[in-house]
């Protein structure tokens, strides 16, 4: 234990830098992931014929082992945070696309029918009916993607993008268990913390009248 605390204080520069790099990678990847996946999810919910192929492709990407994906990208793009971000974005896509699609198509048919019958345009139906109803499900997808991204960002170290993986990797190379732990623990804490924060946000954004049903 004292060994662990000593390691933390002596390597605090390294750990702090890696910690912020890790957050940076995860956040940027998530933001880009959401920007791509949310519209994609809305698109496939409206044009069902695209649903199978798009969700299928994201599912295939997801099955590529993460280390292998980083490996594939290096010869194509080289090393650095760009490579790491691309890989992380790819992993974030599936849960968000899938949940957006599932959430948007989960709205009760009769509610959509009523909306149409009252003269709502497709965009009004999306904005006023489908999105609010889908919001909790979409948020759950973003939560899954977040936890996933924070975990996988640990591998960014192998493409020279830093992050807490650096700390773990150095610890492993120098048989320094305390250092491994000093890298691994913050990753776990970050994942748990993001999960809790997003869970709270999810509760907050769930429209009244839906969560009690």
């Amino acid at each position: 234990m004292s060994n662990f605390l000593e390691t933390i204080s002596s390597r605090s520069d390294l750990i702090t830098e890696a910690f912020f790099q890790h957050i940076y990678l995860s956040f940027v990847a998530l933001a880009i992931g959401i920007l791509i996946a949310l519209p994609a999810g809305i698109l496939v919910a409206r044009y069902h014929r695209f649903a199978e192929p798009i969700i299928g492709v994201t599912a295939v990407l997801q099955t590529i082992p993460s280390l292998a994906l980083f490996g594939f990208l290096v010869p194509l793009i080289g090393i650095g945070s760009k490579t790491a971000l691309i890989a992380l974005v790819i992993y974030a896509l599936l849960p968000i696309v899938r949940n957006t699609y599932a959430g948007l198509t989960s709205a009760d048919e009769s509610i959509i029918e009523a909306g149409r019958g009252m003269g709502m345009t497709p965009n009004q139906i999306l904005k006023k009916i489908e999105l609010p109803i889908a919001l909790p499900v979409i948020m759950a997808g973003i939560r899954t993607a977040t936890v996933l991204t924070v975990g996988i960002a640990t591998l960014a170290t192998f493409v020279g993008a830093g992050g807490l993986g650096d700390v773990i990797y150095r610890g492993l190379q120098s048989y320094n268990n305390a250092l491994v732990l000093a890298g691994a623990l913050p990753v776990a804490l970050l994942a748990i913390m993001f999960d809790l924060v997003l869970k709270w946000v999810e509760k907050r954004v769930t429209p009244k009248g839906i969560n009690n049903q």
Binding site: D108, S110, I111, E113, A114, G115, R116, G117, M118, G119, M120, K128, I129, P132, I133, P207, K208, G209, I210, Q213
Partner: peptide
Amino acid sequence: LRRSIGYVIQRIGLIPHMTIEENIAIV
């Protein structure tokens, strides 16, 4: 045309996240 015609369906179709007032006020 639809906005000028009232429409009531069997499964009611009230929008769950809107209050009664908001539901009535849609059109």
